[in-house]
């Protein structure tokens, strides 16, 4: 029974999402809130951890893989590898800390560099800690202007109140899905190993 299930589980569409941003902006907090509906008050610097969850995306059951990283690495190159593994990115800064906002540009540049062969990388700029309005340092307009410049969406979230937490993950997944779909069409029949596998599975099911 269980063996069967494992195969089936992996046959679900999988979207790989990477949390990017300076330390302390709330990447882990957002991830944990999305995964487990909980908010951790104390700050524990992550090196990296991986999460997986089954969700229903517009009626379709899919899996999301979230890689939550530190963002404080001494050498940017260390990030190259996991940036490459990602399909979509949540570029997180804290609205209470302008440095974290400035840092987003560098992160974005690195992502684009690492994924140079892809014409468009699914990415959302996330201004977190929106519940701390009184400590805001980065205005929404300022952030939105930058996002527009990059022609990506800007969303303000709070990992504490859960505001927009689902939205950023789901919106990102939609972008990832859209990109995959256009790629499939483009490549016209040439399918990734992952897709082939799931198709095979579907045949069995029918």
């Amino acid at each position: 029974m269980a063996a069967n299930k494992n195969k089936n589980q992996s046959s679900l569409v999988l979207h790989k999402v990477i949390m990017v941003g300076s330390g302390g902006v709330g990447k882990s907090a957002l991830t944990l809130q999305f995964m487990y509906d909980e908010f951790v008050e104390d700050y524990e610097p992550t090196k990296a951890d991986s999460y997986r969850k089954k969700v229903v995306l517009d009626g379709e059951e899919v899996q999301i893989d979230i890689l939550d990283t530190a963002g404080q690495e001494d050498y940017a190159a260390i990030r190259d590898n996991y940036f490459r593994s990602g399909e979509g990115f949540l570029l997180v800064f804290s609205i209470t800390e302008s440095e974290s906002f400035s840092a987003t540009s560098d992160f974005r540049e690195q992502i684009l560099r690492v994924k140079a062969e892809e014409d468009k990388v699914p990415l959302l700029v996330v201004g977190n800690k929106s519940d701390l309005e009184d400590r805001r340092q980065v205005s929404a307009d300022e952030a939105r202007a930058k996002a527009d410049e990059w022609s990506v969406q800007y969303v303000e979230t709070s990992a504490k109140t859960r505001a927009n937490v689902d939205k950023v993950f789901f919106d990102l997944m939609r972008e990832v899905r859209a990109k995959k779909m256009s790629e499939t069409k483009e490549k016209n029949g040439k399918k990734s190993g992952n897709k082939k596998k799931s198709l095979k599975e579907r045949c069995v099911l029918l």
């Binding site: 494992n6 589980q9 992996s10 790989k16 090196k47 990296a48 951890d49 991986s50 997986r52 893989d65 890689l67 990283t69 690495e73 001494d74 050498y75 260390i78 590898n81 996991y82 593994s85």
Partner: peptide, 19 residues
């Protein structure tokens, strides 16, 4: 294994440790 998706986590750690 694929299911647990720990490659990036491990590799991240290894790069750190190597340096």
């Amino acid at each position: 294994c694929d299911e647990e998706n720990l490659l990036q986590v491990v590799w991240h750690s290894m790069q750190d440790e190597f340096i």
